[in-house]
Write a protein that binds this DNA or RNA. Sequence first.
DNA 1: CTGCTTGCAAACATTTTGCAGTTCT
DNA 2: AGAACTGCAAAATGTTTGCAAGCAG
Lengths: 164, 164
Amino acid sequence: MADDHSRQIEQFTSALKSRGRFATKQRVRVLEYVLGTRDHFDAEDVLRALKTDKTPVSRATVYRALASLEKCNLVRKVSVGNGRWLFEKVPGKRHHQHIYCAECGKIMEFSEPMIEKRIEEVSRAGGFTLRDHSFQIAGLCNECKRRLEKDKGRVCGQPTPQGR
Amino acid sequence: MADDHSRQIEQFTSALKSRGRFATKQRVRVLEYVLGTRDHFDAEDVLRALKTDKTPVSRATVYRALASLEKCNLVRKVSVGNGRWLFEKVPGKRHHQHIYCAECGKIMEFSEPMIEKRIEEVSRAGGFTLRDHSFQIAGLCNECKRRLEKDKGRVCGQPTPQGR
DNA sequence: CTGCTTGCAAACATTTTGCAGTTCT
DNA sequence: AGAACTGCAAAATGTTTGCAAGCAG
């Protein structure tokens, strides 16, 4: 695992160098943070962690580093409902999908090789070379469902009733 | 089709009224615009169209109306890659999915009942009541693929090389 | 009349950018 | 040395909100 990390860091730094880019401390630290994650995170999470870690880094650099890692396919953006995006590292469990509760935001993961395969086929048939994919699946977890059942009838509500 | 529109508008207005809400001109016009779409759109598109149409409306109202329509399940947000969201109307072809080209943004749609069904099963098994879902599938269309092949080697590039 | 809605402008949250100084190779 | 990088603060996006005035029922 640690070995795996070193290998990926090594791979990243040499990829950078071979392109005339620098493997700066900030860049590597962002990657290290990413490799250490198990969950989803956003730019602020990375920034906060590195600050805590006393690594001198700015918000702009975190954004730039994450964009760089995304191009290297070391992190990926996934949507987690309600117009919000989070990153997750690409290594580790590949091609799992997320179901999130539309009410409380709870996330469940699953993977379905059969679905993956079919998507591969469909995109090829459509003239696309598959690069990456993930799903946004909204549902109601049991708790929220029960809760809402009482409060039902709430249809076409006003987004922000402002007064109140 | 026009009948279908009237029916849905009727449905929307009475749903609003039954909740003590008003079916104002702005609200209805946003819905009309939505029903007339074939593609994806964002709040700005709606605003621009209504302005052109001489309908007095403000940006804030468009956002509020869209949020309202989303709660009514008349529009839905879908992610179209690169952290960007667009709306699409819910009626019409249901549960199709999008593959977009990661380079040029071209969108292709498809639908796969078998996949839909499997997702339904998986979410139920996980204790979720499925509400809605869509996929984000990134690929490379043939043209972009060809184009990139010449320019290859571009790995781990710097997001914004800033100088020049 | 009452109170839901609107428009405006200010507020916000998030991400990007220009530039001068710093660091890497 | 020289190009690439960083930090900062300003700017750009995209969306939300408070409030006074305006309509709908």
